[in-house]
């Protein structure tokens, strides 16, 4: 078991003929990910290293029974690509590219509310279920199969943390990077909800960042009993220059929070263990796996 995707999941790669598609597509396939089709409008009928390319996601679903998508199109084309994948009936969409306008994401999230589909990203490193499938940029050899889930707002910290855990002999069930943009498809709480019911996940590492209120939402979620497994958190950006991209009006909407101190405080009050340094995570997780 794992969350979201495994070795059986049939993916379509949207943007398979682009520069990023050509670099990362083979990487994912080499790991065992089932990429059964590609989509690039206008390039239907071609193939990329044996993977058939279609003009539309609907054709990829009809001909190749794709059930999930990896989206690697330019940021301004993301809204269309994600909505197309959702309308074609896919159950999982992993959006990797950056530069997606926030207002496009407002439309995407609003439309996806009407459908039974999980969106990860955009601006995300994707997800990996070690030993089974990789849908994204996560360097596969940073991971190994095991009992710890990772959910992260940062791409590279996901890899670094998986690697640190692996060095201490601790593997991962699934690692998910939710994406670094202000509005993303799945929140930290959404992914924790999936880990809560996954029998193979015994503990979770949460990698947060300054800005936004997602970590505060996690604190509230844990306090209310939504997540009961051992949880170790790390918040990046203790030294980041104070930035309030939304100014005073934003602070009103967000309420308290956003800063490193506020996030750590909220999580600790909810009983979540918070690591001061990334390198402390493996020991903290090991202790909690033993008890």
């Amino acid at each position: 078991m794992s969350i979201l995707a495994d070795h059986r999941t049939r993916f379509v790669l949207q943007g398979i003929t682009g520069r990023f598609g050509r670099h990362y597509g083979p990487l994912m396939r080499a790991y065992g990910t089932q990429i059964v089709a590609g989509v690039t409008p206008g390039r239907g009928g071609e193939s990329v290293e044996g993977v058939p390319v279609f003009d539309t996601v609907a054709e990829a679903v009809a001909v190749r029974q794709a059930e999930a998508s990896i989206v690697l199109v330019p940021g301004l084309a993301a809204r269309d690509a994600i909505l197309e994948a959702a309308e074609a009936g896919l159950r999982l969409i992993v959006a990797l590219m950056d530069g997606v306008p926030i207002q496009d994401m407002l439309w995407v999230k609003r439309r996806l509310r009407e459908r039974d589909v999980v969106l990860i990203g955009p601006n995300s490193p994707g997800l990996i279920t070690p030993g089974q499938c990789l849908a994204g940029f996560i360097p596969p050899h940073s991971c190994m199969p095991g009992p710890v889930g990772i959910v992260s707002r940062s791409g590279t910290l996901t890899y670094q943390t998986a690697h640190l855990l692996k060095q201490t002999g601790i593997g991962q069930s699934t690692a998910v990077g939710i994406g670094g943009d202000p509005v993303v498809g799945s929140t930290l709480v959404d992914v924790l909800t999936s880990f809560e019911t996954d029998p193979d996940t015994k503990a979770v590492v949460l990698l947060g960042e300054v800005g936004g209120t997602m970590e505060e939402d996690v604190a509230a979620f844990v306090r209310e009993g939504g997540f009961s497994k051992p949880l170790v958190a790390f918040i990046a950006g203790r030294l980041a220059p104070p930035d309030r991209p939304m100014g005073h009006a934003g602070a009103i909407v967000m309420g308290r929070g956003e800063t490193y101190e506020a996030k750590v405080e909220a999580l600790r009050q909810a009983g979540v263990a918070v690591a001061d340094l990334l390198t402390q995570i493996p020991t903290m997780i090991a202790q909690r796996l033993m008890t």
């Binding site: 940062s154 590279t156 910290l157 670094q160 990698l207 203790r238 030294l239 980041a240 990334l278 390198t279």
Partner: peptide, 25 residues
């Protein structure tokens, strides 16, 4: 210099922990 925003920030935190002063992101 880091690969990714999170890594850049974690590098800053780690450098400060060992007694350095991060000059940039």
């Amino acid at each position: 210099i880091g690969t990714g925003a999170g890594m850049a920030m974690a590098n800053m935190d780690q450098v400060a922990y060992f007694g350095g002063q991060p000059a940039n992101f």
